[in-house]
Nucleic acid binder design. Sequence first.
DNA 1: TGTAACACCTCTAGTAACTAGAGGTTCAAG
DNA 2: CTTGAACCTCTAGTTACTAGAGGTGTTACA
Lengths: 138, 138
Amino acid sequence: MYSIGELSRRTNVKVPTIRYYEQTGLMSVPERTHGNQRRYDNAGLERLTFIKHARELGFTIEAISSLIELQDNPDRSCEAATEIASAQLGDVRARIKKLRSLEKELARIARGCDGEGKSSDCYVLESLADHHHCQQAH
Amino acid sequence: MYSIGELSRRTNVKVPTIRYYEQTGLMSVPERTHGNQRRYDNAGLERLTFIKHARELGFTIEAISSLIELQDNPDRSCEAATEIASAQLGDVRARIKKLRSLEKELARIARGCDGEGKSSDCYVLESLADHHHCQQAH
DNA sequence: TGTAACACCTCTAGTAACTAGAGGTTCAAG
DNA sequence: CTTGAACCTCTAGTTACTAGAGGTGTTACA
């Protein structure tokens, strides 16, 4: 049996975050000591590890909740898990695409200014105020 | 002079968001009508446009506040604006790099499961529960 | 046994950038 | 004048945590 602090050290998930996961339903309510302290078994450790991996991959709490439900129901179709993972993959790809666009625009802005002038002639500030830019970005 | 609704329509920034920007100090407090409604001049329109562009590029409210201060002080050095823009560019690049890594891992997970099995044999769920994966990801 | 340090507890509220909704007033058109 | 749309302030919610206050429990040591 692990205390919450031991669980935190083993998984690198902070104590308040573990409590948060219990509050949001991702973690089952653990046993308590006579002194009201949480005690987790190996199933709890494995569950937290699962949650941590999924969070690292960017899955939302809601998506992780769905994945856990599938895990707890071994007869369920694997299709749902695939859909959740694929949706997340698509989301990541969309975010990459958007960030690449932002990178390009920011590089243009940052490159145009060598930092030597005054802010009254600043390319960065002018670019942000540029209505021509406004029309293109929409 | 523009009402807040007109400003919203011209800039595509929502009314509550404009109020939020006023609350956070990005937008100057505008004149009011006798009926207590906000009325913005062209300077207000330009300021909101500036804020919108910067938000679209991912600058935080704090960074935008700094940029606005530079804009309002034309004798200030352009260097600060360049640093803010370059920091944002670096941040965007770091996020792209991280997302690329996530994409790769998610693609591996999603590809390994054809969605035909049961969740008890699910590659997605097994990958998330995989302690070997855990060691690599840290 | 008493003490002290550390770990645990619940609860409230904050973070960032909005967003939603309640309950009210103002404005403009018919 | 009436009505509907737009405006107002205020409170609270969203997501995923995080911080801190005020208290209790646990363990090691004297």
